[in-house]
Design a protein around this nucleic acid. Structure first.
Length: 185
DNA sequence: GCGACAG
DNA sequence: ATCTTGTCGC
């Protein structure tokens, strides 16, 4: 590519395809291993500054164990499908600051529910080798079935949780964690 | 070609 | 994501 910008994007697309192959979808990891501590992370923006926060909580008590806040200059634009280009690096750097251990990661973005089966959550999960759940507030691709599962090309890759959702199915392992679903219709 | 499009 | 007025639903 002669255009340096499209080259970066193409490199990221290729990386996503490789990372997608390494995603472990077998939930035995989550089913067999006790998940006692969970880490949640998110990034907000003001002008061209990114504010990243990560917090570890004890799942059973929801008590906060440790949190870290970081600030970075924004280096990449937001491009649907290439979200990891914008948030992966700041998140990884922020998570490195945590001293307390955690068993699972909660990410504000899609996981396998992605055009190349590699959303931000998949990328982080593979790179950090940590059980990860992608939690997005709106759909990037795929279709929602009446039973709330979301599928792409006939493959079930996600599940929609609303405030009306009852525990069970995919939610049961996380039923003790109460989410606040915003911007959800 | 046109529209849709995580945060 | 952020900004930001009016509007719909409980």
């Amino acid at each position: 590519m002669t255009n340096p910008f499209s080259a970066i994007y193409q490199d990221t697309i290729n990386l996503q395809k490789e990372i997608a192959k390494k995603v472990v979808t077998n939930d035995n990891i989550l089913l067999k291993k006790q998940i006692n501590y969970v880490c949640g992370v998110d990034v907000s923006y003001k002008k061209d500054i990114a504010y990243c926060s990560a917090v570890i909580i004890k799942k059973r008590s929801l008590k906060s164990i440790q949190y870290v806040n970081t600030i970075y200059p924004v280096t990449q634009p937001y491009i649907p499908g290439l979200f990891m280009l914008r948030e992966a690096a700041p998140i990884i750097d922020t998570l490195k600051l945590l001293k307390s251990p955690y068993d699972a990661l909660l990410i504000d973005g899609h996981g396998q529910l992605h055009p190349r089966r590699c959303g931000l959550a998949c990328y982080l999960g593979v790179v950090l080798d940590k059980p990860t759940i992608g939690i997005a507030k709106s759909l990037l691709c795929g279709v929602q079935r009446k039973d709330q599962f979301i599928e792409i090309e006939g493959e079930i890759l996600g599940f929609r949780i609303t405030k009306e959702s009852k525990q069970g199915s995919l939610c049961e392992h996380w039923a003790q964690i109460e989410f606040t679903i915003s911007n959800s219709t």
